[in-house]
């Protein structure tokens, strides 16, 4: 590749400028990667914590369900679940993580007060309310963990992409530009030496002609 470069002073200037730009870009990307890593670790810690909480919440909901099914009967709990059934809508909007696009899930609460769960308060029980409340809590955590996991995945992708760009700059672009710069410098130095030699020869010939005339 270096052979195709025009060995001119202008090209040398341009290559040196490109090398400076690439170093600056690499350093910036390294800084970005460090910030992304810090953010990744923070979100990962949050996700791990909330995942543990989600597991506890799911176990608590299953326990409440088993107790309600034992005391009220599976049929009564199933019947109440029909009434409480509905669509849980969450808003998914566009956001960005360090300049990278990432889905943003709005954490609107999916919990409902006991008189808004679709079943009558007459003929149902506090045990059924308890099951509904615990499953709503679990659902809220599922949405929260899903939002954090989406952010985490996006951060991981961005870290990977940034690392690839840093590696490309460090291992491909910069060595190529340095090689180009060295080649141009070498050609220019060679050309300079040739010019000096030629000038000396011309100077010597001119001196010889002056002596012949004298």
């Amino acid at each position: 590749m270096a052979e195709r470069v025009s060995p001119t002073r202008m090209e040398l200037q341009a290559t040196k400028w490109q090398i400076a730009l690439a170093i600056q870009g690499r350093d910036l990307l390294k800084d970005k990667r460090n910030v992304l890593m810090k953010e990744f670790m923070k979100v990962a810690e949050h996700v791990m914590g909330r995942s543990d909480e989600l597991e506890r919440s799911a176990a608590s909901a299953r326990h409440a369900l088993a107790l309600a099914e034992a005391l009220e009967g599976e049929e009564a709990v199933r019947s109440a679940s029909f009434a409480a059934r509905g669509e849980a809508s969450i808003d998914v909007g566009g956001g960005d993580v360090m300049g990278a696009p990432a889905p943003r899930i709005e954490r609107a609460s999916l919990s409902r007060p006991l008189h808004e769960r679709g079943y009558s308060l007459v003929g149902t029980s506090a045990k059924i309310d308890d099951v509904a409340r615990r499953f709503e809590d679990e659902l809220n955590l599922v949405v929260e963990v899903a939002a954090s996991e989406a952010r985490l995945r996006r951060l991981a992708e961005e870290i990977q992409r940034t690392s690839r760009r840093v590696n490309a700059l460090e291992n491909i672009t910069l060595p190529r530009l340095v090689a180009e710069r060295d080649t141009i410098e070498m050609v220019l130095e060679e050309r300079g030496r040739e010019d000096l030699f030629r000038l000396k020869r011309v100077k010597k010939r001119l001196h010889e002609k002056q002596q012949e005339r004298a």
């Binding site: 009967g73 049929e75 009564a76 199933r78 019947s79 109440a80 029909f82 009434a83 059934r85 509905g86 679709g118 079943y119 003929g123």
Partner: peptide, 26 residues
């Protein structure tokens, strides 16, 4: 009877499949 009727109404109101509603009846 009332529990069964209410289970049927709840199921029909929410579009629950018939087989699933039958499981809530005694």
């Amino acid at each position: 009877d009332l529990s069964n009727l209410i289970a049927i109404l709840r199921g029909q109101a929410r579009g629950v499949p018939a087989e699933e509603i039958l499981q809530a009846l005694v």
